[in-house]
Every structure is written in C-alpha cells, then in structure tokens.
Design a binder for these strands. Sequence first.
DNA 1: CATGAATGAGGTTTCATTCAT
DNA 2: TATGAATGAAACCTCATTCAT
Lengths: 223, 223, 223, 223
Amino acid sequence: MLVTTERSVCRMRKVRTFSRDTELVKQRRNHIVKVATGLIARRGYNNISTRELAAALGMSTGGLYHYIGSKQDILYLIINFTSDLTGQALGRFDQRMLNEAPSRQLRQSIEVYLDIVDSYRDFHNFVNHIMLSLTVSERRIVYQAESRVVEYFEKLILRGIDQGEFVDSDARLLAHNIVAMANAWANRGWYLKKYYTIESYAREQIKLLLIQLEKTKTAEIIY
Amino acid sequence: MLVTTERSVCRMRKVRTFSRDTELVKQRRNHIVKVATGLIARRGYNNISTRELAAALGMSTGGLYHYIGSKQDILYLIINFTSDLTGQALGRFDQRMLNEAPSRQLRQSIEVYLDIVDSYRDFHNFVNHIMLSLTVSERRIVYQAESRVVEYFEKLILRGIDQGEFVDSDARLLAHNIVAMANAWANRGWYLKKYYTIESYAREQIKLLLIQLEKTKTAEIIY
Amino acid sequence: MLVTTERSVCRMRKVRTFSRDTELVKQRRNHIVKVATGLIARRGYNNISTRELAAALGMSTGGLYHYIGSKQDILYLIINFTSDLTGQALGRFDQRMLNEAPSRQLRQSIEVYLDIVDSYRDFHNFVNHIMLSLTVSERRIVYQAESRVVEYFEKLILRGIDQGEFVDSDARLLAHNIVAMANAWANRGWYLKKYYTIESYAREQIKLLLIQLEKTKTAEIIY
Amino acid sequence: MLVTTERSVCRMRKVRTFSRDTELVKQRRNHIVKVATGLIARRGYNNISTRELAAALGMSTGGLYHYIGSKQDILYLIINFTSDLTGQALGRFDQRMLNEAPSRQLRQSIEVYLDIVDSYRDFHNFVNHIMLSLTVSERRIVYQAESRVVEYFEKLILRGIDQGEFVDSDARLLAHNIVAMANAWANRGWYLKKYYTIESYAREQIKLLLIQLEKTKTAEIIY
DNA sequence: CATGAATGAGGTTTCATTCAT
DNA sequence: TATGAATGAAACCTCATTCAT
C-alpha cells in the first residue's frame, strides 16, 4: 500500500465542544466544514464573521460555539477533514490497483485525484488563501497531506521504472508536477475552464505526462 | 512583439492622494508596495493593521493616507506594480530574442520568468491569499497579467511548431503548464527547495518540457 | 436572650423552585450554597459560570434552575444561610451563658465567634466581594446580620459595666472592634496567619480588649 | 525613615498605550483611575462595561484603549496609584515627625492615615471586592502596600516601647489593629457613620489604643 | 506635508436562561 | 424530575479612517 491512511500524531489537536454526544458533534462539524468552506472560498476567511457563518448554518452564534472553541478551529476542521478524505480516497484506490500495469494505474490515479480535487475545489482554491491564517502546526498538516499525495505518485512512477514500463526519470519532479497540475485545475479554473472540461483536461495532461514517461514518443503510436 | 506592455483600460483606477508632487507619490507608493508585500506575505493581509504598516514604513498613520485612499488600495497597488513589472520584463526580453531559435528562446524565457517569479516570490506566494480580498475588477488585473504570460509562451510554442522545430502539440496547455510550474516554485517552495535549487529546478523542468516538444525523445540525444 | 434568631421580615424573599418536595429543595440548596461559596471565594462570582457551577454540583445546567430562579439567587441563599447560622450559633451560646460573669462570657463569646468566622472563612472573605453584586435589600440582610452580632457584644459589655466588672466605656465601639477583629482573621488571614494561630490570635486580642475594659491594667495582674 | 517610598520591583508591569506622549498618558490614566474607582465602588467591576466606563470618561471605547491594554489593566492602575499615594503620604509625614514623642506621632499618624483611607474610601471599600479579579502578582501589590503601613505603625510602637513611653506589648498585633480599624471606617462606614464622625471615630479609637499602650489607665488621667 | 488622538462600527466570544425531550 | 442543546444579548477589544493641530 502506497498511502498510509492512519492519522498522524500531529493532527491530534483537540477542538473544544460543550457536547458529549460525539455523533452530534461529528454531524454538526461536518455541516460547519461544508458550509464554511463554501463561504470562505467565495468571500475570504476574514470577510466572513462568525455571526454570518452561524446564520448560514441555521444556528445561533452561541450554538456555533457549542461545537468549536474558536473561529480558528474552523480552519483546523476544514484542513483536517479534507486531507483525511483525500488520503482515504487515494488509499482505497491504491489497494484495488496493486496488480495493474503502472501506466494504467497512473492514468486512473490521476483521474481519481483530479476528481477529488474537483469535488473539493473550494478547499484547494482557498488553501493558499488560508495558509497565512494557519498556525505553524496547522500548516504542517496541509504540507503533510500534500506530501503524501506526491509520495504516492512518486512510488507509482518508480514502480513503473522498475518494471521497465517507464523510462528512467526524475520521479519526484514528475510526481510533483502531477499534483501541481491537479491544483491548477482548482486554482486556475478561471482560465482552464474556458478551454477544457475536467475530462479533456485529464486526458490531455495524461497524454503529455506519458510522452515524458514512455519509451517511444506517444505521438508516434496510436493512443 | 508577443507581449503588450501598455496598461490596459481596466487598470486605470485612480488611487486617491493628497499630494500633487507626482514624483514623491510614486516614490512613496513604491516603498509602500515593497514593505506591504513583505509584511502581508509573512502575516496575512488582515493581520497587518494600518498602524503597524505605517510604523514599518516609518510613517504616521495619517501620513500613509496621504498616498493611498484606503487599505484596499494597497492591494491594488501591489498587483498593479507586480504585474507591470512582470509584463515589462518579459516584454523587454521578447524584443531581444525575436530572431533566436524557438527552443532557445523558450529555454531562456522560462529561466527569465522563473527568476522574476523568484524575486517576486512573496507576491506569487500570497496572490492566492489576497485574491479573496480583491474586488472583481482587481481580480481581473491579476488574471490578465497571468493570461498575458501564458499567451507569451503559447505564441512562442506556436512559432516553434510553425517553424517545424517542435512537434505539433496543445500549445495552450503547455504554456499553461509552464506558468503553473513557475508558480509552484513560489507556492510550493517549502517542498521543492528541499530537493532543488532554482537552477536545477529550471534545468530539469525545461528538460521535461522539451521531451514533450521535440521530435525525438530528448533522452535519446545528447543534451 | 441577646440575639433574636427568628427570621426578620425582609428575609422573606422567595426563591423560585420547580420542585414541591421541600426536603429535597432544602437539601439541594444546602449543597449549592456550600459548593458555590467555595468556588466563588476562590475565583469570584463573575468568573464562575452556571455551567461550571452545575458541573461542580454534579447537576445539569437545567437541573440547577430547578432549585434557584436565577444566578443572583445563589448569592441570596449564601448570605441568608450564613447569617442564619451565625445568629443561631451565638444565640444558642447566649442561652447557656446567661448566668456567667460578663468577662467570662465575653472571653468565650469571642472565641465562639472567631470559630464561626473561621469555619465560614470563605464567606467572610468574599462578603465584600459580592457586596457590590447584591441588591439593596440583600445588602440589608448582611448589614442586619452583622449588626446583630455587634449588638450582642454591645449588650454583653454593657452588662459588664452595669455589674461593675468593666470600667465605663464606649460599648458600641468596643463591640464593633470585636467584630472587625474577627473579620480581619478572615480578610487579612494572608498576613495574620504568618504570625498567629487562631488560638493565639484569640488569646492576644482578648488580652488587649480586657486591658481596655478591666479596672486595673491587665499587665499588672496575673492573667 | 520608617516607610520606603520607592516602587518595588514587582510593580514594574507595563500597561500598553498607543501614545508616546507620557504626560498625556499620565493625565488620562489619572482620570481613568479616578472615574473608574468611583464607578466600580458603586456598581462593581463586572457590572461596569468598558463602553459605560468610556462614556463616563467622556471618551469613545476605542479612545479608552489608547491608554490601557485591557479592562484588567484598570484594576492594576487603581491599586498601583492608590498604594503609591498612601505610601508617599505616610512617608512624607514620617519625615516631619521623627523627633516627636512616640505617643504624639502615633496619635497624628493615625489621624493622617484615617484621612487617607477616608479620601480613598472608594478604593478601600472595594479592594476586597476586586481582590478576586486580580492576578496573583496584582494581589501582591495590595498586600505589600498594606504590609508597609502595618510595619510603619509597628516600628512606631516599638520606638515608644524602647523609649519607655509605652508599656511592652505585641507591637505587631496593635499595628495590625490600627490598620484594621482604619479599614473598618471605609468598609463598615454604613454602620459607623450612624454614630461617629471621622474626628470622633479617630479620637475614640486613639483613646482606646492608648489605654493599651500607656503605663497607667488612660481613664484615670485627664485626657 | 505630517502627526497621532479620536472615533465607533463591528469583530469574536461568553453565558444566564429556556424548553423540547 | 432531569437533561443539555439552543438562544441572543452583551461583553471586551480592534482597527480603518478622519481631522485638528
């Protein structure tokens, strides 16, 4: 398995709640994460007041603070929630694909990852925005999550090289480019969506990547 | 000439000043942009008060407001200033390279652009951060600046294809990838700088790009 | 009898309860008074939330409000409870001592009163603290309770003067000084406890008082 | 000199201000201390909002925070201001009286101290009230100020004993009683003022004290 | 031109109290 | 009878902006 899904130690920060009903807390926090992510992505963390957020959540201001300890905690919940989901999704995928040809797994992994980024578009859109509002340890969570994805692709490419399917390359840089390419879909959607759908974007980028990895020019074979 | 350097219409917003000494205004605003960029990149736009900014500038709070009309104007000045500089730099470069082979110009343009991004690293780092604090028309400035750079590379690649040096490709996507790659150097420096210098990063990325563009596998020729 | 123990009219304020089981109400309120007194003495009335108090009581927030009508009522219960107890204790004592020599009764009354103050130290410590949170009528309860004690000692001293055992003095002022002295044990314990135990404090203060009351200098006789 | 007036080290806490005009800061803070003391004495620290205080000061909320860093700082300013003044007043007095007979100095010191307590009645009234809102180090300031006064009287009494004017006594306890007596004038004014003016209170209490200190019963001599 | 004191709206957070379960 | 989630008013504090000096 290429991706470890267990929570790393540094994520263990506690967020205050006044409720002891863990199920309710989980449910409300999911709601908070979802609504807050949308609002923040549209208007910016500092332009959303807790009053406004509570209203959007259908709660009272005080009610919101039953489930979080501070406004900052919302950011923590968002990055935690999202990086967990990303890790889990790739992890699940990884297990199913272990026996496939690397090129096939790579192709499909990219599609899966792009889909994840697309559905958490809001998050990927504002992760840079909120970065400057995060504490050092919160930033580390984001870094680790991204690093894990890069590592996933790196190991996958290395396997392809090992198995002789891919040409020897700088696997780390290629893996990093894949992640940057996926993030670009969220960050630079304003540009890309004028010319691509997510499917065509994935197809074209995969094609370009395989030119770099395959032993003969992709352009010369029937794709 | 591939890059137009004249200011586009929508940038014409006026920023209030109480001074009639245009030279002084320009000088002070340059200072404001430089210092504010650094502060915001480190601490975030909303975590820097005008009092603090004024102190860092060696001005009084009131003095600051002689050269800007509002705190928001600072963002406007920053994006304006930076996108002007980027446009000018690539523009100047463009004029000198018109007669070079496309592959050579591409190689050098990427190096130049990476250097620009690197020296305005702070800006590229927080452009996503402040995006959500910008007005619609301010965002357009950022978009346009980026679009111009993409266009520059796109035209360059198209020229290469036209001249038969490059294989026929999706020039737009490749141009876009170049810009994303350069931005990654600023945004994801925390990761990349563990493994690359700006020189090695440029070299490896250019190598990867040329695999996609050249007619035979770069790996097969002596580079 | 020098002290009247029946509740005075103004204490008759009703505190709301949803329970009809008077025994349960009494028991719960005793518990509330005891725990709240300790908490408030340590942290201050306004720094203890009803949530925290309820938790310390082993009740739910709502449960607490079954036995009180408002947070303010807790203060009322405390002052009522404590001044009742003080009155009763001195009253009981009074009845047993009616036939003793005034100087002997004085000596022992002071010891008893000091013991009471010491065991309700928390209360005497914060009575000044909460004074400013009390309503006018609640303050009167505190004043009356203190006045009754002063009166008790005043009458006792007057009896001693009448009977020729004490020199003619300002009985009121001396009685007042006794109460102030006892309160000092609670309020200024941080200072006094460095040098005195409650026994030595009582002994020395009684000795000083009797110098003022007895016909020859105490120092000149064998004490 | 019996009282040291130099500021002790632990008082050196800084209170934030945005002004660099020390004279203005001093002036405004004096005003804040005066008005806040009155308001708090009447209504309680927690029942006065910063908005209300600012209004009473003729300032805006924001204006208030130019001269203090937090509401808590107001308490610090009050205790600092008052204990400084008390120390200075007794100190000045001390220097003028060094050659007087101890009994005469004692008599006059008590009058001076009672006057101080009376003019800072509000403060002495609520010092117990705010005690529970003070931080540990702030409490220490209050304790030290009171201790210095007790010491002053203690040394004075000891001098009287040394010089053979006073009978050998527990100087510490007597000194402590003097301070408690003075505080009582502030704390228990609601009772005492029904029967005494400050002058008669001082006269009677001094008379009682001298009975304890002088070698023959004061009552037997013409006072 | 420059200063910095002043403003006051609005931010985050707390908490006494209620009420459906 | 007991629970604790929910409320919303009000607390403390910040800060972009103005304006008298």
